[in-house]
Amino acid sequence: MRLARRHLLATAGAALALPRLGQAQGLTKVTLRLKWLPQTQFAGFYLAAERGYYREAGLDLTINPGGPNLLTENLVASGNEQFGLSGGMDSVFSAREKGLPILCIGVAHQVTPFVFVAKADGPVKTLEDFRGRKATAWFTGAHLVLYGMLASRGIPRDALSITPQQVSVTPFVNGEVDVVAATWYNELNVLKARLGGVEKLKLFVAEDYGITVPRDTVIANTAFAQQNPRAVEAFLRASIRGWKASAAEPEAAVAAVMKIAPTIDRAHQEAMLPEALRLMQAGAAARHGLFAIDPAAVKKAHDFFVEHRVLAGPIDLAAAFQPQYLDAIPLPERLA
C-alpha cells in the first residue's frame, strides 16, 4: 500500500513536472509531433531519442505521438511544436496554400507508401476489373492516387464506387469491399495475417501506373527554422543516425518503440519496420540519402494535385520545400 502510494506520487510528480523549466545548459528544447500513434513506422526517431543522439546534437527533444484527432501541420504551425512528421506531399501543399507557417525539410517515404489490394481468388485481377466494384481509400490523398491510376488506363472514376476508408480493414476481409487501400508497413501486414499470406492478395502498385506520391514529410515551423537553422540541421542529423541504427539493429529499434507503447503487438511491429525502411531507402534516397527531397518527384506530385484540382493553383515549391538544412549534412552521412 505504502509502496503503491509512493509510486502514485512519483508518477503524478513526474507528470506534473513535464513542462520542465531550466533544462541542462546549452540544449535547445524542441518537440517532434508524429503523424500517428507510436509504432515502428517511426522507430528511427524513438531509437535516436533513446540513445541520446538528439542530446548529443544539442537538442532536448520530446516526441509527441499523433492520433485521430490531431493535425500535425496545425500543431507545428502554432509554434508550440517545432518539428512534425506530416502526411503526404499533398499535406504540405495544402498547408502552404492555406498560408500555415510550415516548411518541408525532408521526405521520409520516397515512394508511394500504400498499395491497393484485392483478394487473389476474387473477381478483380486487373485494373480493368475495378469497374462496377466497391473500393475504399483514405480521403486524405490515397483516393487521388487511385483516380490517377484509373485515369492512366482510361477508366472513369465513376465506373466504380469509391468511398472513404475507415481505420479497420475488416469490411474488406469480410467481403463487403472488393478493393482496399493498405500501407506497405501496416495494413498489408494485417491483411497477410488475416487472409493467410501474400499469395492470397492481388496488389496494385501506384508506381506501376506511373504515379509516385512520396509521403511522411518532415516539416518544421517556419519562424523556428529561420531563426535556428543549426537546430534544424542537428535534428535531421540525429534523426538520420537513429534510422541508420534502426536498419543495422532492428531488434533495438523495435524495443525502443515497445518501451514507449508496451501494449502494442510485437510481431506486427517487427513486420512493419523493414517495410518502413524499404520505403525510406527507395527512389532518390539511394543516391541522395535518407530524407532526400527529390525536386522532380515534388514537381510531379504537385502537378498531379493541381491537375486533380486538389490545389486551386500552383504553389511556390521553392519556398515550401527547403533542402538546404539537409544539404548542410555531408552526403556520406546521409546515405543509408
Binding site: 507528470a15 509531433r33 500517428w36 500513434l37 507510436p38 509504432q39 516526441i63 509527441n64 505521438p65 499523433g66 492520433g67 485521430p68 484527432n69 490531431l70 481505420v167 479497420s168 475488416t170 494485417v190 514507449i260 507503447a261 501494449t263 502494442i264 503487438d265 506486427h268
Partner: peptide
C-alpha cells in the same frame, strides 16, 4: 489522452483500437 498523449489508459485504448488488438 486521445490528443497525442504517450501514457495512460486512454492512450492505450487508442493504440489498441487503431491496431485492432
Amino acid at each position: 489522452e486521445w490528443f497525442g498523449a504517450t501514457q495512460g489508459v486512454g492512450a492505450m485504448l487508442l493504440a489498441a483500437l487503431f491496431n485492432e488488438q
